[in-house]
Design a protein around this nucleic acid. Sequence first.
DNA 1: CCAAATTAGTTGCAAGTGAGACTATTATCA
DNA 2: TGATAATAGTCTCACTTGCAACTAATTTGG
Lengths: 150, 150
Amino acid sequence: MNEPFDLLQFLPFRLNRLAAEVSRRLHEIYGEPYGIDVAEWRVVATLGARGGATAQEIVRSTRTHKSTISRAVSHLMKLGWVERGRQAKDRRNLELQLTRLGAKMHDEIIPLVRAAEKDILLTLGKDTAQVLSAITRLEAALDIGGADDR
Amino acid sequence: MNEPFDLLQFLPFRLNRLAAEVSRRLHEIYGEPYGIDVAEWRVVATLGARGGATAQEIVRSTRTHKSTISRAVSHLMKLGWVERGRQAKDRRNLELQLTRLGAKMHDEIIPLVRAAEKDILLTLGKDTAQVLSAITRLEAALDIGGADDR
DNA sequence: CCAAATTAGTTGCAAGTGAGACTATTATCA
DNA sequence: TGATAATAGTCTCACTTGCAACTAATTTGG
């Protein structure tokens, strides 16, 4: 009596599959060539954009678990991409920043991921504005607003 | 000289965060109350819709790794939600189907997840059609089309 | 000023997951 | 027919990740 349920048409499923595939392709860009994973990429992108941040700020803005960020930072320091700046007054807050090498890698990767994003936006075509504003509304409804760390 | 890169505005990041949050909320519906995970939910939904399928068919249509599906099926059989039907001519293909209990659980869960989907669609509002067609185009472009198993 | 609470970051542990080896079964084709 | 390939499903291993306990530093309230 009920209309049949089709998982393949189910929006949450499709969203999930879509995001997974986009993530996978993005990872092909910075993963294999540079040897970093998604958490590490987020750290690099955040530090690159802000020119420095504490782990906590990265946790908040990327909504990634603090243990994941901690390990990502640790690996990036081993790679020589990230260093701790001089401690501020609060010695719990460890200010992080990209090294010269990290900045170079960042500047190499950014155009690549921008190009990948562009492909997506091209596919959206004339619906781009509606889709983006719909995503913004969804973020608000789900309480994951683009709001920065607070 | 380049315009600064903002991870928080980066579409792949936003998509990923969005899908993760939708998944998380969905999991609140069938996870805690029923004790199943996302792979198990996909198995139940697929078997419910088709009234029977092999593990391989579920793997293909849901794009979930075969070892994950294998474990999901194994757990669902322990729970008494799923049973193996009589083997077809090919004894490698194990036809799966919901038990009476599994069907009951399925019928309980479906309206709940439908309601969750409806919330999302309401948020999309008048842009719903455009967003859905954009998602369909993205699926095609990423080669994950809603195509069934083939 | 001191005890308790809070915050930043790290780490051990357990649960989950993909890759790929492995078994069993069926298909292909010389 | 018989050897080889292909397919379905299971299982082991290594790796990842979240949780929660833990350390260290700082803040708050009495």
